[in-house]
């Protein structure tokens, strides 16, 4: 009976969060800290219209970045994990590049890729790329040669190995790395959307509301962005439990 207790946990968490917000609103008592009771109606009023369009734009960018990062990083990670020699060549480069805060490359990306939707997606995908690459590589390196050999001895060629070994082995790694870095990618999205676009929650929160002192609307945007992170996290968590059932048995 894990699901109900987990659901209860989420509800309790939401209630506590709401209560804390309410208390802060009372204590601070300024326009910059409106109470949840003032923000939530605004959120639902704006969601079918303007706010919804910005939310869709942001969601689209994150999903596109996840897709782009996964289809590039997962195969490369698999390859490096299975080919030790190749991994040894590239490992220093990856070790150096991994901790660099990629967001500082934003201006470079704008210049090279142009001021477009794609450059924002590319930046997020670039960050996710390294997260996925490293986890998938390590997971693939943990696949023992004996496992591959015994599956080959059952008649498996490349196609069957991919289908029954490599794919199921790397899928959990992709989900784990995405779950861990989904918050980071939304944070980067927020920054990237503050300029050089007319759509997205970052633009909405900073340009459309904050700069013109529409605090309730700004909070509706913050709420939307938080929900985006929360929903993505729970979807990834759910998928992880589906795919990784063997890790969740006692």
């Amino acid at each position: 009976m894990k699901q109900p207790s987990k659901l209860a946990n989420i509800l309790i968490g939401l209630l506590m969060f709401g209560a804390l917000w309410q208390i802060l609103a009372w204590l601070i008592h300024r326009p910059i800290m409106p109470a949840p009771g003032e923000v939530i109606p605004v959120f639902f009023r704006l969601l079918p219209g303007e706010l919804g369009r910005h939310l869709l734009a942001s969601t689209g960018r994150v999903l596109a970045a996840i897709a782009l990062a996964t289809i590039t990083a997962a195969p490369i990670g698999l390859g490096l994990g299975q080919m030790r020699k190749l991994d040894r060549i590239f490992d220093p480069l990856i070790a150096i590049s991994y901790p660099i805060p990629k967001i500082v490359l934003l201006p470079v990306i704008y210049v090279l890729l142009g001021i477009s939707n794609f450059s924002k997606i590319f930046l997020i995908a670039f960050i996710l790329f390294f997260q996925i690459l490293i986890v998938v590589r390590d997971e693939a390196a943990n696949l023992r040669p004996e496992l591959i050999l015994s599956v080959r001895s059952l008649g498996a060629g490349r196609r069957a190995l991919f289908r029954y070994v490599y794919l199921p082995a790397s899928l959990p790694a992709v989900l784990t790395s995405l779950r861990v870095s989904v918050g980071l990618s939304i944070a980067v999205l927020f920054i990237a959307e503050q300029s050089l676009t007319r759509y997205g929650l970052g633009y909405y929160i900073v340009v459309k509301t904050y700069q013109v002192l529409l605090y309730k609307e700004m909070y509706a945007g913050i709420l939307a962005m938080s929900l985006l992170g929360l929903v993505l996290y729970f979807i990834l968590d759910f998928l992880d439990r589906q795919v990784n059932r063997h890790l969740y048995v006692e």
């Binding site: 004996e146 008649g155 029954y164 063997h246």
Partner: peptide
């Protein structure tokens, strides 16, 4: 030819029944 190694080479994410079936699954694929 059947091969059995010390490291049993089972798929950790598959059940006993799925593992036992793997060879036949691969044959069905090809």
């Amino acid at each position: 030819s059947g091969l059995i190694l010390q490291d049993h080479g089972l798929l950790p994410w598959a059940t006993v029944a799925e593992n036992a079936r793997l060879g036949l699954t691969i044959r069905t694929l090809y």
